[in-house]
């Protein structure tokens, strides 16, 4: 767990980066108002956010963040093609169902990212989370048992998230 000060600094850097990208300029007025707003927001909001609390940045973690983005983009494209094929096929050849998968991730942020990633890849949709069990609506159920479903849906994301979030 990082200290509040470090979390506030992380938040400050993120907010200022977003501000500068949105303004697309580094004139002194823009920069100063950005610094003012980022300071105000990060000091106020740091008490409500634990999004940065569990990340420990190291070269290995950064590598896995990049790998994760790569894996995620690949999955996103592949799954979009799969769903598009299902939609365009003359016989609606779907086998939908809600399966359960177990996650070994402990961090809440990591679980949130895992659920977001699963939901973003078309074909799978997280309906509910109870404890360490995610209930996933799957448009084309290929495995009804938790182990098989976990392997098919979550394993690729989990491998990198478990390194990033320890």
């Amino acid at each position: 767990m990082l200290s509040k000060a470090k979390m506030a600094i992380n938040l400050w850097v993120t907010l200022l980066a977003i501000w500068l990208v949105l303004n697309a300029s580094i004139e002194s007025q823009v920069l100063l108002s950005g610094i003012f707003l980022a300071t105000l927001l990060s000091v106020t909001l740091v008490h409500f956010s634990s999004a940065y609390a569990d990340v420990r940045l190291s070269p290995r973690v950064i590598g896995h963040i990049l790998l994760y983005l790569l894996v995620f983009t690949g999955e996103l494209v592949r799954a979009n093609f799969n769903v598009a094929r299902l939609v365009f096929s003359p016989r609606l050849d779907i086998h939908p169902g809600i399966v359960e998968i177990k996650t070994r991730l402990q961090s809440r942020t990591a679980r949130m990212l895992l659920a977001n990633s699963i939901t973003l890849t078309p074909g799978t949709l997280v309906v509910n989370i109870i404890g360490d069990t995610l209930f996933v609506h799957w448009i084309d159920v290929r495995s009804k048992d938790p182990a098989g479903a976990t392997q098919a849906i979550a394993a690729r994301f989990e491998k990198h998230l478990s390194v990033i979030y320890g």
Binding site: V83, V87, I94, P122, I139
Partner: peptide
Amino acid sequence: YNRIQTGTKAST
């Protein structure tokens, strides 16, 4: 559920 699958997410 299947409409959510295609409608909101094939659009990403």
